[in-house]
C-alpha cells in the first residue's frame, strides 16, 4: 500500500530520470563500504564530491571492506549498504556466492574505459601495482631475477604474506616471462621461495609495513604497493615485472532500485577522466580511462600503474586461475609458512 503510493507519487514528478526507458526514483543518500585510508579519501575527492555538486546525492563511506563482511551483510538480509569495494580476485568469489548484482552498464552510460575495468559485476575504478622497491643506497635490482638473487643483492627482504603475490614473482625469478606466468607452476614457485626464505625478515600483512620497515632499516628490499612508496625520496622502485591489479566497486545483492540508480550515477562520475585525475592527486593509483595520461602531470607519469611506460612491463592478475586453485595453493602456503 505504502509502496504503491510512493511509486505513483514519484512517477508524477517532472524531474524523474529516464533510465533504460523506465521512470525510476533515485535515493538521495547511499552507503558504501570501501577499503579505507588514502584510497577512500581519493574516492571522496575524485568522485563523491563531484556527484554531490551535480545531483545532490550523498555517499556515506565506511571501511574496511572484506569478503567476510559482504557475505555477512547479504546473508543477514540487510540492504542499507549499496556499494562494496572488492579486489579483482574477490569479485569473482563474490559473484559465485551470489553476493553482488549485475551492473546495468547502459544505465551507467560511462565514458571510455579499459575493457577489463568494465566488468559484468563491478566497476574497476582503481589500478594499483605491486612492485619491487628498496631503501636508497643499496644495489638496485632491475628484474625479479635480480631481486631474488640475495648473493648479488645482499639485504633483508620484506615480502607479502599472500601467495597470490609471491608465487608469480618467484616464477619470474625462475625465468618464466610475464606473459607465460599463468597457469602458475606452483611447485617451481615454492622451490624458488624456499631459496630466498632465509633472507626474508618479514612477511607483511598490512600495506603500511614495508615502507616503514625500509625506513627503519629493518629490511632493505620489499615487494609492496606502488602507492606506498612512490614520491618518497627515501625509496627506489621499479615497475618491471610488477603486478597490475584492479579494485572494483560492486553493488550489494538485494539493493533497492532507487539505491542502484544512485549508484549508477556515481559510476558515471567515476568513468570521467577529469574526476580520475582529481583522485590521482590524493593517491598515486589511477582510474580506468585510456585518456587519463594527458590529464596527469607529465613529470609524475612514471609513478602511475596505468601510464603507458608502466602498464606494458607489468603482468595482469588472473582472477579465474586463483578462483579455481586458491584453496589448494593456500594449504601449500601454510605448510611453507610452517617451514620458516
Amino acid at each position: 500500500m505504502k509502496r504503491r503510493t510512493f511509486v505513483a507519487a514519484a512517477a508524477s514528478l517532472p524531474a524523474v530520470n529516464i533510465l533504460s526507458g523506465t521512470a525510476r526514483a533515485q535515493s538521495k543518500e547511499i552507503r558504501m563500504i570501501e577499503s579505507g585510508g588514502a584510497s577512500g579519501d581519493s574516492i571522496e575527492k575524485g568522485y563523491i564530491e563531484p556527484l554531490f555538486k551535480k545531483t545532490g546525492i550523498k555517499v556515506v563511506r565506511e571501511n574496511p571492506s572484506s569478503l567476510g563482511k559482504l557475505r555477512a551483510l547479504v546473508e543477514s538480509g540487510q540492504t542499507t549498504t549499496t556499494l562494496f569495494e572488492l579486489g579483482s580476485g574477490i569479485i569473482l568469489q563474490a559473484k559465485k556466492l551470489g553476493l553482488i548484482e549485475k551492473v546495468d552498464w547502459a544505465a551507467v552510460n560511462p565514458a571510455e574505459m579499459f575493457p577489463e575495468a568494465k566488468n559484468e559485476y563491478g566497476f574497476g575504478y582503481q589500478y594499483f601495482s605491486t612492485i619491487m622497491a628498496w631503501r636508497k643506497g643499496v644495489k638496485e635490482p632491475k628484474s625479479f631475477a635480480e631481486f631474488f638473487d640475495t648473493k648479488a643483492f645482499p639485504g633483508k627482504r620484506c615480502l607479502p604474506d599472500f601467495p597470490h603475490y609471491c608465487l608469480p614473482f618467484a616464477l619470474q625469478a625462475a625465468g618464466v616471462p610475464i606473459d607465460k606466468l599463468f597457469p602458475l607452476d606452483v611447485d617451481l614457485a615454492f622451490k624458488k621461495l624456499n631459496e630466498i626464505k632465509k633472507d626474508v625478515a618479514v612477511w607483511w600483512k598490512a600495506g603500511a609495513q614495508p615502507p616503514q620497515l625500509m625506513k627503519d632499516n629493518e629490511v632493505q628490499y620489499s615487494i609492496c604497493w606502488s602507492g606506498r612508496v612512490v614520491g618518497d625520496p627515501a625509496f627506489g622502485l621499479n615497475f618491471a615485472g610488477g603486478k597490475a591489479d584492479l579494485s572494483f566497486i560492486a553493488i550489494v545483492k538485494g539493493s533497492s532500485p532507487e539505491n542502484k540508480a544512485a549508484a549508477y550515477k556515481l559510476f558515471h562520475e567515476m568513468s570521467l577522466p577529469e574526476n580520475q585525475a582529481k583522485a590521482a592527486e590524493v593517491i598515486s593509483y589511477t582510474g580506468p580511462s585510456p585518456n587519463l595520461d594527458a590529464l596527469l602531470p607529465k613529470d609524475k607519469l612514471w609513478q602511475f600503474p596505468t601510464s603507458k611506460q608502466n602498464k606494458a612491463v607489468q603482468y595482469f592478475e588472473n582472477a579465474e586461475w586463483w578462483a579455481d586453485n586458491g584453496e589448494a595453493v593456500n594449504k601449500k602456503w601454510e605448510a611453507f609458512k610452517l617451514s620458516l
Binding site: S66, L67, G68, R71, G89, I90, Q93, L97, D161, F162, A201, V202, W203, W204, K205, A206, Q209, G326, E327, N330, E334, K337, L338, L340
Partner: peptide, 28 residues
C-alpha cells in the same frame, strides 16, 4: 603475530582470516 612475528609465525587467527576473507571457505 602478524607484525612482530614478521609473518613467520603462523597463527590460527591469521589462517581463519584467510579462509574467511581471501578464499571464502567458511565451512573449513
Amino acid at each position: 603475530p602478524a607484525i612482530l612475528g614478521g609473518g613467520r609465525v603462523p597463527m590460527i587467527s591469521n589462517l581463519l582470516d584467510t579462509l574467511i576473507n581471501q578464499i571464502p571457505r567458511w565451512e573449513q
